[in-house]
């Protein structure tokens, strides 16, 4: 384990996760969509004109990409953690190049079938504090007793 390992025993219910600020920029979304679909055809995700034609304020970040950023919030908080489950609700669209705040809070912890698990609520909010994505995650942290 490295010096920045976060152990199960060090985590308490109510602990904050983050916050961290991230702007998912247009170039990142273009690269992500390319990895995803293997092509560069214009979509609501990568093309301002297509997004405008669909009545959107601008190109949007794919939901699955926002999940990857929420996953990073958790792995940055506890490097080396195993993310067992991430379950999110997409409440509103996430636009490119806007600085969003990712955060979480520990809601429960316990030993489940020998695994040292921590449950948490996670959020992605816009600059006004509106939660665009909410969710729950289950993490497995290393234990000093194992």
């Amino acid at each position: 384990m490295t010096s920045d390992t976060r152990y199960y025993e060090d985590v308490d219910v109510g602990d904050d996760i983050g916050p961290i600020e991230r702007a998912i920029n247009h170039g990142q979304v273009v690269e992500f969509v390319k990895a995803w679909t293997n092509d560069t055809k214009p979509t609501r995700f990568n093309d301002p004109e297509t997004a405008a034609n669909e009545g959107l304020a601008g190109p949007i970040v794919p939901g699955v990409m926002t999940m990857a950023f929420i996953s990073r919030l958790l792995t940055e908080w506890a490097p080396g953690v195993s993310l067992n489950t991430l379950d999110v609700v997409f409440r509103q669209l996430v636009l490119h190049d806007v600085v969003h705040t990712l955060s979480g809070i520990v809601t429960d912890k316990g030993m489940i079938e020998g695994r040292s698990e921590v449950q948490c609520d996670v959020f992605l909010a816009d600059p006004e504090g509106t939660r665009l994505i909410i969710g729950k995650a289950i993490l497995e942290l290393p234990s000093r007793e194992s």
Binding site: G63, V64, M67, S82, L83, N84, T85, L86, D87, V88, V89, F90
Partner: peptide, 9 residues
């Protein structure tokens, strides 16, 4: 709409 998603790793 795509309302939500969960992944179990």
């Amino acid at each position: 709409f795509h309302a939500g998603q969960a992944i179990e790793y």
